[in-house]
């Protein structure tokens, strides 16, 4: 089972997707149409790039910085949240999803994902 299939089957997961770090390729499952998934990929790619740069800056100030390199990020709104680890994104309904379950699967499955392409 791919990570997208596994995540898409969790309660409260509205949509999941995977995008390439360079270029416009992406795949997705759930309640987003192709154009929305493309936009989500653009947004997630941009934020991932920023977070990686910022983590490097944090890391440059100390040799023992557990934030660097960044593995992902989460943003939360009143009802929905977006979780990203490596190049996989997941849109959640906070009222139905378990953040810990989603993050747990993403972190485990994407543990060895390379970050040099970010």
């Amino acid at each position: 089972m791919t990570i997208l299939t596994e995540l898409a089957g969790l309660p409260g997961v509205m949509a999941v997707g995977e995008y390439s770090y360079r270029g416009d390729r992406f795949s997705h499952k759930g309640q987003l149409d192709d154009e929305q998934a493309r936009m989500a990929s653009i947004m997630c790619r941009a934020t991932t790039m920023s977070v990686h740069m910022q983590s490097e800056i944090l890391g440059s100030f100390s040799t023992d910085c557990g934030f660097n390199p960044a593995r992902g990020w989460i943003v939360t709104g009143p009802r929905f949240a977006v979780c990203v680890v490596a190049n996989v994104f997941c849109f959640l309904d906070k009222t139905a999803a378990s953040l810990n379950d989603v993050l747990g699967i993403m972190r485990t499955q994407l543990d060895g994902a390379p970050s040099e392409l970010v």
Partner: peptide, 10 residues
């Protein structure tokens, strides 16, 4: 430069 590019795209 890449971050500004990403934000301009958005």
């Amino acid at each position: 430069k890449r971050i500004v590019q990403g934000n301009a795209d958005q």
